[in-house]
């Protein structure tokens, strides 16, 4: 394997929550959104991250890109630790890592026209370029993402959700970044538009050779885009494996439940198949279960699961599972 483009070591993000009606001197409650996640990403690789709402996927992405400060661990990009950089150096390094957001319209400044929005990263990092040249590049990229370049003077509210997401993609790619982080880029879009945007992302990823972290709560979308998939639950990694292996032979009980929840577009088969539904709710991240965080809802949990973090097994090449009981279930 080549040297990783991105290496995340035991990354933690903790939020301070002020209890309601607290005195100024009472200590804040600690909400652990990301509890020690490690991952590696090779250049050009696409990693999918799935998990239900509140599992810390988006927080992980924002901690990697640095819009949320991390409280522990390291993010090493291209051999340099991003978490210890001073703000000015960090700003210069941002050109290599770009992000696509969940709500396509909210991610665009309503007072700026499309050309200026797409050209903004370019003018920020290459101020000598000039607005005209930057807008010309923006127009070229608009064409590439499937927008008519003569709409360059229009404003975000004049576009549909799918078009807005294309603008967001163009803005993220104009600097030719080496890592693209997509935070649920299609979950706010209409189902009919989803496939188009996902395919566009996939094509552009190949064309630009950019590594990608693709976050979604929908396994069927992630499967389509990713080379590898990482499953998160309550801020912890549950399982990571090559996409094909994870879908075909899921080992972790949580992954199995997630895959079982993906609907099959055939009512007869859908009715016939067994359905290991998860019981209960996601526990509060303010007070996560001891030991394995999944044990409160796990069908194969046993008393010893509460004692410590679960051992990580390696049942196949590149396949890691944070559950010691997978061979017995």
């Amino acid at each position: 394997m080549t040297a990783p483009l991105l290496q995340v070591d035991e990354l933690r993000v903790t939020f301070d929550i002020r209890p309601p009606g607290a005195w100024p001197w009472t200590p804040s409650l600690k909400l652990q959104a990301v509890g020690g996640v490690s991952l590696q990403l090779a250049p050009g690789e696409a990693l999918g991250i799935v998990g239900e709402s509140g599992s810390g996927k988006s927080t992980l992405a924002r901690a990697i890109i640095g819009t949320i400060p991390s409280t522990g661990g390291r993010v090493i990009f291209d051999g340099r630790d991003l978490t210890t950089m001073d703000p000015a150096t960090r700003r210069r390094h941002r050109r290599d890592v770009q992000m696509i957001f969940q709500d396509p319209l909210a991610a665009l400044n309503p007072r700026m026209n499309v050309g200026d929005i797409i050209a903004e990263p370019l003018l920020t990092h290459e101020p000598g370029l000039g607005r005209k040249a930057a807008r010309r590049q923006a127009a070229e990229l608009m064409e590439r993402v499937g927008l008519l370049p003569n709409l360059i003077n229009r404003y975000p509210h004049e576009f549909s959700g799918g078009q807005c997401q294309r603008i967001g993609i163009a803005r993220a790619l104009i600097l030719r970044p080496r890592l693209l982080i997509c935070d649920e880029p299609v979950s706010a879009l209409d189902v009919s538009i989803r496939a188009q945007v996902v395919n566009l992302l996939k094509d552009l990823q190949r064309e630009f050779g950019v590594a990608m972290i693709f976050i979604a709560h929908d396994l069927s979308v992630v499967r389509h885009v990713s080379d590898r998939i990482l499953v998160m639950y309550l801020g912890k990694m549950m399982e990571v494996a090559p996409a094909r292996a994870l879908i075909a032979t899921p080992r972790h009980p949580y992954t199995k439940a997630l895959i079982a929840a993906v609907p099959i577009p055939d009512p007869l088969r859908e009715k016939a198949r067994p359905r290991p539904v998860l019981e209960g709710e996601l526990p509060s991240p303010l007070n996560p279960p001891s030991g394995c965080v999944f044990r409160t809802r796990c069908p194969i949990a046993r008393p010893s699961c509460a004692e410590g973090p679960p051992a990580v097994l390696n049942p196949g090449p590149g396949h890691f599972v944070a559950c010691p009981w997978i061979d017995e279930a």
């Binding site: 819009t67 941002r94 957001f101 991610a107 665009l108 903004e120 920020t124």
Partner: peptide, 25 residues
């Protein structure tokens, strides 16, 4: 708003963010 977060992620300077993204809105 996400567009301010986007500007931070792009690497725009804080003062420019205030003048370009906050004040016009």
């Amino acid at each position: 708003m996400e567009y301010v977060e986007a500007a931070v992620a792009i690497g725009v300077r804080p003062m420019t963010i205030i003048l370009r993204h906050i004040v016009p809105n």
